[in-house]
Design a protein around this nucleic acid. Sequence first.
DNA 1: GCATTTTAGTATCTATACTTACCAATTTTG
DNA 2: CAAAATTGGTAAGTATAGATACTAAAATGC
Lengths: 148, 148
Amino acid sequence: MNAKNMAGHVIRQLHQMSTQVYASHMQAAGFDLTPVQFAAMDALSAQPGLDQATIAASIACDRATTGGVIDRLEQKGLVARVVNEKDRRARVVTLTDQGRDLFQQALPIVAGLQVDILQALSPDERSDFLRLAKKAVQGAQDGDALRT
Amino acid sequence: MNAKNMAGHVIRQLHQMSTQVYASHMQAAGFDLTPVQFAAMDALSAQPGLDQATIAASIACDRATTGGVIDRLEQKGLVARVVNEKDRRARVVTLTDQGRDLFQQALPIVAGLQVDILQALSPDERSDFLRLAKKAVQGAQDGDALRT
DNA sequence: GCATTTTAGTATCTATACTTACCAATTTTG
DNA sequence: CAAAATTGGTAAGTATAGATACTAAAATGC
């Protein structure tokens, strides 16, 4: 059994390829937004005022990583962070006007590049792959692989 | 179209899950070896004396990343690095005796945990998933997604 | 055979991503 | 209600992962 054929190795390469496609498309479209930064903005667009821990759960990162992501979004002026008066440990995060605008512009680009990530697969294969991938992720969260 | 259903996001989660499963199994078995470090050792086990650029191509990392990986393996005493006298730019990397031993011990653990990464899928689904994933990676390398 | 280009490796910078440890605030418990 | 446990966020440390820029060495072109 060669390491190159192991599931973990193939998944890692898939991930690298995916971020490459994302980066090249987004750079070509003039956006300075990483995949995780976009995911955080997507979560905030759907539910404004989430705290960082809830964002972390939504984008599947831990609290420390999410803190850094929000830091960078705040530095770019795309989100605002305010201490929650009801629970002074938590910070309420919202998109700024600029953040909302940028997200709306980026959304069609990000949605459009998804097909290019799996460009080598036919439409049928793509939907098969996505179904299996989602099932694998879902099953792991229900099971014991991702214990937070 | 929710970001959570996009291919890129699902693939990122797959990757996180995969590294989690790897880390927990390897830690339980008493190994201090990351997935990429293992992949590098696998490449060196199959072809001793590779230079770093060839290792980089083999494990699908760039030269800078691979340099760091080899640094850490060298610090642990698992690989040795010598300047190639034929081409003084290149460094010939080989597994040490200790590295070879450790790799042989780790190999069955790493091979065994691959099934747990896709634990939510049936055997048929697993092989379908791996076939599609490999095709997607392969197609991207032939195409224009991963241009080195 | 010398200039140009390419290649191998390193260094630096940024961005996930996780761990552990810590502080502060809130909840739970006895 | 006070002690204990939990939770939200940050900080420090380590490991990919890539971009860019740099040095040194080798290959190529003319």
